[in-house]
Design a binder for these strands. Structure first.
Lengths: 170, 170
DNA sequence: CAGTTTATGTCAGCCTTGTTGACATTCCAA
DNA sequence: TTGGAATGTCAACAAGGCTGACATAAACTG
């Protein structure tokens, strides 16, 4: 199967979109598009002393204010030690506030400060601008397909996290 | 506009797919899906002493055998120093062969060895399997939309590279 | 055709961000 | 009340980005 020309052509249906060549194009599209996806916020971040990891933390703290470190860990899929380094700098720089939980004092609840929200807005605006342009160029049907495929590419665990965030949103 | 509810609702058309909330969901879908996209090859690679950078190099050398280092640099969008570290280990381990150009002796042309092709197959199979499952679940129309949006998300320079590769393919 | 400029690739060293291991604090249940 | 589980922090290391300095080959220029 490694170099078979079509991988799903056993059936009689029109499965030409499942040929290895089509899949490879999808893989490469994913690779190049992700670069574009991160390019604009990355540019903003390197001007300050931050990286993509800081952006991710800021994004999800903004999305779910008061979230715990542990919850953020599950969303981001990194180790707590790795996240901790990022959080430490964000807290030290006054962009994130960490409050000890009142019911469970082991927990730290995370919030963006005013400065944090300002930076979040800058980063979001940049990233959304590109996404908006892409969505508008592609049209609503293409966008629906885009999201369907992306969801199907996630692990079930990620899907659940994604859906939970989605539903908490609007 | 940073926290406006809709960003494109000036027009009378049905532009509800361009609301900030929809864009944010697209952003998060991209984030989670990319994790899934890289998860399977990553697992294979960490067993050996390689990382995602090695995978990318192997992928595109396989895609365009005989490519020069400089060409690969443009495709991957990293610095030559960064790529060089990866190439050096791949060559040392006998997965990639580097031949001095005959017309222009400054150039090095890159090829996968037999072992290199074997690893490439393993990685490709893993990544394609997930992509195939996602494509099949989503169906051909969704896949078309997926690719349309991803292409619209690339910089024009990347789009050109992507298209060139695509057309050289089948 | 000699000297300079350009193209290409390599080496050294730094930074971000991932990893594992060790540990302090807090909570809860036996 | 004490021992284990949960939560978060600190230290040290590895991968893979980056810039800067440099060697060599090719191309250009007077």
């Amino acid at each position: 199967m490694a170099d078979g020309r079509t991988s799903g052509s056993i059936s009689g249906e029109n499965l030409l979109f499942l040929t290895d060549e089509q899949l490879r194009q999808g893989i490469e599209a994913m690779f190049f598009a992700y670069r574009g996806f991160t390019a604009d916020p990355d540019r903003i971040l390197t001007d300050m002393a931050y990286g993509r990891a800081h952006h991710r933390a800021i994004h999800f703290i903004n999305r779910a204010p008061g979230t715990t470190v542990n919850n953020l860990l599950n969303i981001l899929g990194v180790t707590k030690q790795s996240l901790n380094r990022v959080l430490r700098t964000l807290i030290a720089d006054g962009l994130v506030e960490s409050r000890v939980g009142q019911t469970d004092k082991r927990e730290r609840h995370l919030f963006l400060t005013e400065d944090g929200r300002t930076l979040e807005g800058r980063l979001s605006d940049a990233q959304r601008a590109r996404m908006r342009a892409a969505f508008r160029d592609a049209g609503p049907d293409a966008v629906a397909g885009f999201r369907t495929v992306l969801e199907a590419m996630m692990d079930t665990e990620m899907q659940r996290t994604y859906t939970r965030l989605k539903e908490s949103g609007a």
